[in-house]
Each structure stands twice: as structure tokens, then as C-alpha cells.
Amino acid sequence: MTSSALTKPQTCGLLATCLRFHIVGAVIVSLGVASFKFALAEPTKKAYPDFYRNYDTMKDFEEMKKAGIFHSSK
């Protein structure tokens, strides 16, 4: 009978190997999320109050009415 040579399973240090892989992945993902938060989300949240501080709704409404966006208002 011929038997094919199977590789032996890793029995010692398997947890350490898996943890090393997953910790590196977790650090990379967390750095990506943190960079997204501070590069895009925070400036966007700060831009809303700046925009609405000087926003005139009636002026904007009149401009849109003149442009013909609202068909029911005259």
C-alpha cells in the first residue's frame, strides 16, 4: 500500500500564530477607521454649523423659485 505524505498539523504555538496574525489585522483596521474619523468625519461635522450660521432660507427659496425648481409656488 502506498500512503500519501500528509503534513502534520501544527500542535504547538497555534494560538500564538493566529493571534499574531489577527492582532496585526486589527491594528491596521483600527488605524484606518481612526484616520477616516479624523480626516473626513470631524471636518464634516464642523462644516455644518459654519454653513448654517449664515444660511438664509428665504433667500435660497427665492433663488430656487426664480430658477423654476418649484412649479406650484408663484
Score class of each variant (00 low, 15 high):
Lys59Val: 08
Pro49Asp: 07
Ser72Gly: 00
His71Ser: 08
Lys46Pro: 04
Phe61Gly: 00
Lys37Gly: 08
Ile28Asn: 04
Arg20Met: 02
Pro9Ile: 02
Lys65Met: 01
Glu42Trp: 08
Ser35Arg: 08
His71Gly: 01
Ala16Val: 00
Thr11Trp: 04
Val24Asp: 08
Val33Met: 09
Lys46Arg: 11
Thr11His: 07
Leu31Glu: 04
Phe70Ala: 02
Pro49Gln: 10
Asn54Gln: 13
Ser35Gln: 06
Gln10Ile: 13
Ser4Lys: 12
Glu63Ile: 05
Glu42Ser: 05
Thr7Leu: 06
Leu6Ala: 11
Ala5Val: 07
Ile23Trp: 10
Lys74Ser: 07
Lys59Tyr: 07
Leu15Trp: 12
Asp60Gln: 14
Ser3Tyr: 14
Leu14Tyr: 14
Ala5His: 15
Lys46His: 01
Glu63Asp: 12
Lys66His: 06
Thr11Asp: 11
Lys8Gln: 11
Lys37Thr: 15
Lys65Asp: 03
Ser3Ala: 12
Ser4His: 12
Lys8Ile: 05
Asp56His: 11
Gly68Tyr: 00
Pro9Gly: 07
Pro9Lys: 15
Glu42Tyr: 10
Phe70Val: 01
Thr7Glu: 13
Thr17Tyr: 12
Leu19His: 10
Asp60Trp: 10
Pro9Met: 06
Leu15Ile: 07
Lys45Trp: 06
His71Gln: 08
Lys37Leu: 11
Phe21Arg: 09
Phe61Glu: 03
Ser30Tyr: 15
Lys37Glu: 10
Cys12Ser: 15
Met1Thr: 12
Pro43Tyr: 09
Gly25Phe: 02
His22Gln: 14
Lys46Tyr: 00
Val24Leu: 05
Glu42Met: 06
Leu14Thr: 13
